[in-house]
Every structure is written in structure tokens, then in C-alpha cells.
Design a protein around this nucleic acid. Sequence first.
DNA 1: GGTTAATGCAACCCTGTAGTTGCAGTAACT
DNA 2: AGTTACTGCAACTACAGGGTTGCATTAACC
Lengths: 105, 105
Amino acid sequence: MTASTLVPVFAALGDETRWSILAALGEGDASASALAGRLPVTRQAIAKHLAVLQEAGLVESVRVGRELRYRVLGSQLSETARSLDRIGAEWDRRLAAIKRIAEGL
Amino acid sequence: MTASTLVPVFAALGDETRWSILAALGEGDASASALAGRLPVTRQAIAKHLAVLQEAGLVESVRVGRELRYRVLGSQLSETARSLDRIGAEWDRRLAAIKRIAEGL
DNA sequence: GGTTAATGCAACCCTGTAGTTGCAGTAACT
DNA sequence: AGTTACTGCAACTACAGGGTTGCATTAACC
């Protein structure tokens, strides 16, 4: 997972309302309309958020009857987490190396 | 690390320019002016980004001579990664349980 | 087939923010 | 002390995006 792939994921996660949606979906799949019943925003706003989340690969949709039901993808979070951890570790490693050189060891 | 604490971190990470800054800092500490020499944006824009990153706990600043040098904090990335992983795993766990119930097992 | 309840689309408002330019302040260095 | 190089602050532009309302569309269901 490259860094440029990660940006839309983080952008998607950088919004309170989308976290509310994700949290709601974390308790069971739901449609945009169903979510609109629980959250203090309109269905259309939620639909937009779901599009962003889907684009980022954080949710997927399944047609069931006449409704579009959304499911959260925890695996994508875990992958993102691994990428983050690797990047952070790499920075620390490189900066530690620089510090060592600077101290003349 | 609570979910609401995470939002500003993700919002900070959801921008290409800030990743460029973080990547540059990952190769060694630098001031806003130094970064402006390497990136295609003005020093003032970089200063704003650094403020956002600092607010999110992703960088820290140290005065050295007459310049303000910034250092990337890989540890914050690692902590964030751990939180993400926990949350994703929790969603998967709960949804798997729901699925099991739905299947009548 | 008609009704109902869901989604899809479009236009619009408004705030936040990435970016700029310009200038003032401040602290090294000679 | 004067010069220089950095940071800090303020005002402004422009665009993205979160939110809304309104209407069209489509597909279950009786």
C-alpha cells in the first residue's frame, strides 16, 4: 500500500460524521436511509459520506431487496494501520541513524 | 487513545502537501524556510501545515539558533496505527458475531 | 397496476482551509 | 550597531466539501 493510496483513506477518516457512520455500521450493516434515522444529518449527506468511504475502500455496498446496504471493512483499517506503523518506524530508524552520525559514533 | 483524539490526526494526514512535508522531515529535521526550498509552496503555507501537524502531535519543534527546526514523531504514527488496528478488529469481531447469530449457529 | 419506500441526481449555501502576497518583528553574525 | 536571515502576523483569493432542499427515478409489495 503506497503513501498516495493512503491519503484518501485518511481524508475519509478525518471527519467526525464519517466516524459516526462507521461506528454505526460497526454494529451491523445498514442502508443510507437507516443511518439517517440514527444520525442528525440528512440521508443525502450520509449518501455522500458513504461514497467517500467506499472510494477509500472502507465500506462496501450490497443490494438487498430495494435497499443498498453498506458494510464496514475492518480489514482495510488493519492494512492502513500496518502501513502507518511501517512508515513511522522507518522515520524513527532513519532519524536515529542521523543522530548517531551527528554524535560521531 | 480515543476516537475523537484520532480525528485531527487523520485530518492532518489527509493532505498530500503535508505528506510531502512529513516525508522531507523523515530524512532529517528542518525549518519551515528550509522546507520551502524543497517544496513547491511558500514558506507561509508550510508554516500553516506545520502548525496543523504539531496540533495533531505528529511533529515537534525545537529552537536552534535563530531557526525553528521541526522533527517528525514516528511514535505518534505507531500509536495511531495501534488504535486503528484495534478498532478494525473490533468491527470485524462484532460483525462476525452478528453473522453467526443470523445463520442460527 | 398502483402505491409506497427506497435510491439517484442537481442546484445551491456556507464554512473551512490551502494558498498567496506583503510587511513587521526579532535574533545572529560580522 | 548595522545587516542579514529567519519567523510571525494579517488580509485576501479561491476552491473543496459538508450540509441542505427539491424532485426524479426505480423497484418491491399488495
